[in-house]
Design a protein around this nucleic acid. Structure first.
Length: 204
DNA sequence: ACATTAACTGTTA
DNA sequence: TAACAGTTAATGT
């Protein structure tokens, strides 16, 4: 039904505008909360998490990204500083293109500009869904919202076809719950046939 | 390192 | 007041 293209720009095109590839070890910061957005970033391979820490130091994960996904794009269109961190979870290589060259690229490629708008719209839509479920006091609603959100990045939406590749702790940090609650709630949801668990793997 | 369980506390429906 | 999320801690995989 829906093919979400999270923004992916052709690598050689990016390079022709002066993009560079930077390699990161696991647990390195790509940018930090408070930095100024200066580059367009696209993940070539690896896994990156977007998070922030609340006033008590508790982590809140915004997203976990896989290859070919871009991140932090929307901040390039503001003069705000990043309110989030981007941290590698595995060894990763990232393509980075300076902001001004990125804008030139968009100007010369209206089709890509349009795709970017499309991508922003999709994100906005699923962010709304996420927000609505996060506002719920019921853990199962939050988990369900997260699953829908994650599944939206994947093309296939058959029942129980989507494998959630996150640890229980990561799920908890994405929706502001405790691991124990996530575990308890996942069990209930399994009983209610909302998802399947096969040797600890969550299928949605 | 991650998942689960149990026992307890405080909050809320 | 019964259910249920957070806390802590122990145990299992």
């Amino acid at each position: 039904m829906k093919t979400i293209s999270c923004m992916k720009i052709d690598e050689s095109l990016l390079e022709s505008f002066g993009a560079e590839i930077k390699n990161y070890k696991p647990k390195e910061f790509i940018f930090r909360d408070g930095d100024s957005p200066l580059y367009y970033y696209q993940l070539k391979n690896g896994v990156v998490k977007i998070n922030h820490y609340d006033e008590n130091g508790k982590e809140f994960i915004h997203n976990i990204l896989g290859e070919n996904q871009s991140f932090g794009d929307s901040l390039l269109f503001t003069n705000k500083k990043y309110p989030i961190n981007a941290i590698t979870l595995s060894s990763s290589s990232v393509i980075k293109l300076p902001k001004n060259r990125f804008f030139e690229l968009l100007q010369q490629h209206p089709d890509i500009n349009r795709d970017l708008n499309n991508c922003f719209s999709q994100h906005l839509y699923y962010n709304l869904i996420m927000m609505q479920s996060l506002a719920s006091p019921h853990p199962s609603v939050r988990i369900k919202g997260l699953m829908e959100y994650l599944k939206s990045f994947h093309s296939c939406d058959d029942a129980f076809s989507f494998h959630i590749k996150l640890t229980r702790q990561q799920i908890a940090d994405l929706i502001g719950l405790r691991v124990e609650t996530v575990i308890r709630t996942l069990k209930k949801m399994q009983e209610e046939n909302l998802l399947k668990i096969e040797n600890k793997q969550i299928l949605y």
